[in-house]
Design a protein around this nucleic acid. Structure first.
Lengths: 112, 112
DNA sequence: GGACGACGTTTCGTTTCCGAAACAGTCTAC
DNA sequence: GTAGACTGTTTCGGAAACGAAACGTCGTCC
């Protein structure tokens, strides 16, 4: 794949996100969401913060926002009540599933 | 390419953008930038607004921000002074070039 | 059991973006 | 030449995210 093909692919996916999708996720929010669903659990606030190289409040706020959207869920860790484990949700899985479809559909369009 | 591979690819690219890149572009800003550099010129504010399905002020503000970063430039259309044509810059080309490298590098890492 | 450290959250003030409406400047048509 | 349509921009109030610091809660360790 050539560089300009990669850029074109990325552009079309971004474009479809801008035009179609109503819940407009931040780059950080999207990264957090993908990390939660693709990396092996358990996920904690400090773990995500360290992984992304951001401060903890960034994670907390992103979880607030995406939690309100139903994309993620939080639960206290019973074994260590200081921790909060981030849970996946059906809505979140569906969201990313559709997003993956978009990525592949765009690819199909560009390189039939 | 399978759906989860696509998501994993997208995640890693987003992650590198979050951790590395200092100028953190919005999804809309990135889409505008890519459209300017990949679609055939000339580009105008109303054209971009129609293409992305957003209002004109969104484009104006994004151009302000990215213009301050040196990623794009604006010039009045001599033949019709109402229009503003958006110009590419060396810095913008370099930025997207490096971004394309990131995309391909991540891809190489995931599927060696 | 009390001091210390770690966890996630909240607060504070600032910055940025947003949508809708109003705006100044320019072209066009009559 | 003047009314009207069009360009891109600015304004307005409101919403959201930011960094840095302080906070309440909980575990650990002596």
């Amino acid at each position: 794949m050539r560089p300009d093909q990669a850029l074109r692919w990325w552009k079309e996916v971004c474009l479809s996100q801008v035009t179609d999708r109503h819940p407009d996720l931040t780059l950080r929010q999207m990264t957090i969401l993908l990390t939660i669903y693709l990396d092996p659990p358990p996920h904690t606030v400090r773990g995500l913060a360290a992984r992304l190289g951001v401060t903890k409040p960034v994670i907390t706020r992103a979880l607030d926002t995406m939690g309100a959207m139903g994309l993620v869920d939080r639960r206290r860790d019973e074994s260590d009540l200081r921790n909060v484990v981030i849970m996946r949700t059906v809505a979140g899985s569906l969201y990313l599933e559709q997003f993956a479809d978009t990525i592949l559909a765009v690819r199909q369009e560009l390189h039939p």
